[in-house]
Amino acid sequence: MPRGVVVVDGERCKGCGLCIAACPQKVLASSGTLNNSGYDVVHMKNPDACVGCAFCALTCPDIALSVYREKTSA
């Protein structure tokens, strides 16, 4: 079970790659799948490594990424 998840809004992503470079865990990569605008959408290539730090979403100019983190047990 990963500690974090990045949900990509495939139609907002413009494949700029800023999130890929920002991810300290090397979770993200280009998917090779083009969206309706012709952009190569990013995806979680290595989901198990995600810690939910949200650095990817911070750098995303298109607000295409939502980030979820495992609930810490109270």
Binding site: R12, P61, D62, V67, R69, E70
Partner: peptide, 22 residues
Amino acid sequence: RMTKVFGRPESLTQARSTYCPG
């Protein structure tokens, strides 16, 4: 079952940006 730690700000519309990639 997870906590959303990052999402679209409420005070932004759903309109897609017209800016270039990056």
